[in-house]
Computed example of a mutant assay.
Amino acid sequence: MVYDENDYLMLSGIQHFQFCKRQWGLIHIEQVWAENEATTHGQILHQKADNPYIKEKRKDVITSRAMHVSSKTLGLYGILDVVEFHKDESGVKLKGKRGNWIPRIVEYKRGKPKKDTRDIVQLVAQTICLEETMGCHIEVGYLYYHSVNQKKEIEITDQLRQEVYDLAEQMHTYYEQKIIDKAEYFKNCSLCSLVDICMPRLSKKSRNVENYIRQSLLSEESI
């Protein structure tokens, strides 16, 4: 499927969508946002990474920042933190540079590696966008975790690519139909900056009351 540019969604949203569809809906459909310590720290961390005027060249690696990319097949657009171009004859041409270069994304995260794949699917989506923008194929990317000073290499597999295409299709369906999932409480909800807006604990209590009433009525009917 090919999406019209007017229907593009934010690339960064795929991470929210994979982690919590309600969070994504509140942010991207309801246009709701709130800051907490984690989001503020993340913004500070990205200030240098997102500065397009900071460019570096070390030996056979060129580092570029704040690249604009998009994908017609995903219907997503966004800005990449950092792209490293490694000199390699199997790569692509860069304007004003000799030789060929292979691009590899470095996505910066404030915390540490997560048990789920939300960071990975974001990196893979970014890679697909960069591939379409530059007309190349990219096999690996990197996630850099600030709190543990760890740069983790991620292989961009066909399975991960398909997961990203499926998520992007769901995102467009949710957005077009204005679907916002009901709140569910998880142990990580307290870390979300939208917890006071989402109010998952109240939703859980409401369901518990409904279940209690339903069970009571069933018990009375069986008497």
Rank of each mutant, 00 (worst) to 15 (best):
D50F: 10
R110T: 11
K59M: 12
V69H: 03
S90N: 15
Q122A: 02
K72A: 12
Y77P: 00
V32K: 15
T73Q: 12
I128R: 03
G91P: 09
E89P: 11
T40N: 09
H46D: 08
E56Q: 14
R65Y: 11
R58W: 11
V140E: 10
D88P: 07
G135F: 07
D60F: 10
L94W: 11
Q126D: 14
Q31V: 03
P52W: 08
G75R: 04
C129D: 02
R110H: 06
G42V: 01
K72F: 10
V32P: 00
L26D: 04
H86V: 13
W101A: 03
H68A: 15
C129K: 04
I44E: 10
W33Q: 02
D119V: 00
D116I: 00
K114Q: 12
Q31K: 15
G135I: 06
G99F: 07
Q122M: 01
A49P: 01
T63V: 13
I54N: 06
R22S: 05
E107S: 14
C136M: 10
E107I: 01
K95S: 15
G78C: 08
Q31I: 01
D81H: 07
Y77D: 11
K115R: 10
V140Y: 14
K57V: 12
G135E: 08
T133F: 02
G75F: 07
G135N: 09
I44Y: 09
G135T: 08
V140T: 13
V82G: 00
T39F: 02
S90D: 15
G99H: 07
I138C: 01
Q31T: 06
I128M: 09
S71C: 08
K57E: 15
H68D: 13
M67C: 13
R65C: 10
L123T: 03
